[in-house]
Computed example of a mutant assay.
Amino acid sequence: MSRWDSTPVIRFFGGRKLLYLLGVVLLVGLNILVFSSVGFIFNPLLIFIKTIALPLILSVVVYYLLRPIINLLEAWRIKRIWGILITLLALVGIITLLVVLIIPFLEKQLISLSEELPRYLRDMIKGTDEWLRNSIFSVYYTNLFQDVDGMLNQIPDYISSYASETVEGITSIISTVTSVVVAIVTLPFILFYLLKDGYRLPAFVIRLFPPKFRPEISSVFKGIDHQLSAYIQGQIIVSFCIGVMMYIGFLIIGLDYALLLAAIASVTSVVPYLGPIIAITPALIISIVTSPFMVVKLVIVWTIVQLLEGKFISPQIMGKSLHIHPVTIIFVLLTAGHLFGVIGIILAIPGYAILKVIVSHMYFWFQRRYNRFVEEEDQYKME
């Protein structure tokens, strides 16, 4: 036995091949160093990726939502091209119906809420201030906050101090709106070709690899496809159920802006754990200003919806397809949000699921390659 095979750890990592592995790691590090030094060369490529990222992501999401319908129509002996056209026309009709009937009402509620929200915040702060001044915590509270009204009066000064950033903010908004418009315009074309030829893409990529690797690469694509399909389809259904339940609950307790608040809860529910906290904030502010009893009713509705979603809806619809621990989800969301902002938070979980599939398959291949070593270790432990 050579010196490279003298320990179980070295033998597990391939003996002499460990040098090759370390060389690959060193090469990757050198590539990163070179890229950081001449990164400006790749700026056009990065701009291109940022331009196509949003329409491509939206197209993939809609693709996984519509693919089961296209496959069902194809099973009914309707040609795929006609099934795609029928489905897209139906989708356009549904979107038009929503825009005509629901969006104007939501827009009115959003404008009204944006006008009333400062008053809600002011009333909530003053009410909390009065309660704390007359409570057993009044001594500590007075020392910490001398004058809440003075703090409120300083808000215009803060707004004025940031007035110089208005132009930059407007530029950012215009850039975002432009990206959204480009995404909406290009979405139908990308989606059409994804639905028409998307199933051929994995086979095309697999053919780029040597024949002996193709079965393993095929299993990776199948795993990624299963994870994305389960997550996107399941999350959309769960979000819709949460929105409906919230709307019914808000109507029952008589909370203002019920439809708008339910829509916010439905949209933010795509972010696990953090989404419900974000969604309940405006509803909580409105309920606190309305009456203490409204706060109690809101908490009851929110608790019932969360219990129904966590115990019945999500397990039945999404099951355990992702197999991600809640603590891992929180860390992934926080890291992705810090690195990539809101887009990172939305794409964190499916991105982590894809990465998990790739890493798990690579580890399985690595372990199978050195299966002899694993069997020897198991036999040694049994003895």
Rank of each mutant, 00 (worst) to 15 (best):
I313M: 08
Y141D: 07
V167I: 09
I277C: 09
T7C: 07
D157G: 07
L152D: 04
L26S: 06
E309G: 01
G14A: 05
E165K: 10
P188N: 08
I300T: 11
V299H: 09
P118I: 12
A90Q: 05
C241G: 01
S287Y: 15
S37Q: 15
I237R: 07
K196N: 08
T178A: 13
V181Y: 14
F145P: 04
P282I: 10
L91H: 06
E376F: 10
I349Q: 06
K311C: 00
L56C: 03
T290P: 00
I253N: 02
T51W: 14
L91C: 09
L98Q: 06
V182G: 05
R80Q: 10
I52N: 04
D197S: 11
F366P: 03
S160Q: 14
F364V: 06
M318H: 05
I84W: 02
S239I: 15
V327Q: 14
Y363N: 15
I206D: 04
L298P: 01
F137W: 14
R369H: 06
V92K: 05
Y63S: 00
L339M: 09
F340W: 15
S266A: 15
I285S: 05
P282W: 11
L339A: 13
G351T: 10
K126C: 13
P68F: 03
S321I: 03
Y247N: 03
L261W: 08
L85N: 06
S360M: 12
T87P: 00
P215C: 05
L21P: 00
R368S: 11
M1N: 03
Q146K: 12
Q235R: 15
I41G: 00
S314C: 10
K126T: 15
L65G: 02
L117A: 14
Q154I: 04
G319Y: 11
S266T: 07
W365P: 00
Y257D: 08
I49C: 05
G39W: 09
R119C: 01
F213S: 10
V185R: 11
M245H: 05
M362N: 09
Y141A: 13
S114G: 13
K222T: 05
I78M: 07
I330P: 00
S360E: 13
A258L: 10
L27Y: 03
